[in-house]
Amino acid sequence: MIHLHYFAGLKEVAGKASEDIQWTDGTVEDIVKWAADTYRAFDFSAVQVAVNEEYVLETESVKPGDHVAFIPPVSGG
């Protein structure tokens, strides 16, 4: 199981702020593929991923229990 977090436009497309999914092994890239497949109305091309609150590369592995956040381009300030 991993914990997924959605924000901004992706939260609206997903209709939820977070969810848990079954997960045994894989990389950030695999999860982005899963999310892009699941939420086709959202454009993931500019999305960055944070695992356990740190930005990571797509090659990073994701382990059960991790918190994975999809970070669309930020616009604070």
Binding site: F7, A8, G9, S45, A46, A50, A69, I71, P72, P73, V74, S75, G76, G77
Partner: peptide
């Protein structure tokens, strides 16, 4: 990771540099 959405009279949009 902070986002703003502009709410207009005739719509709304999440802002972000793609």
């Amino acid at each position: 990771p902070i986002w703003k959405k502009e709410m207009w009279e005739d719509g709304e949009e999440w802002i972000g540099d793609q």
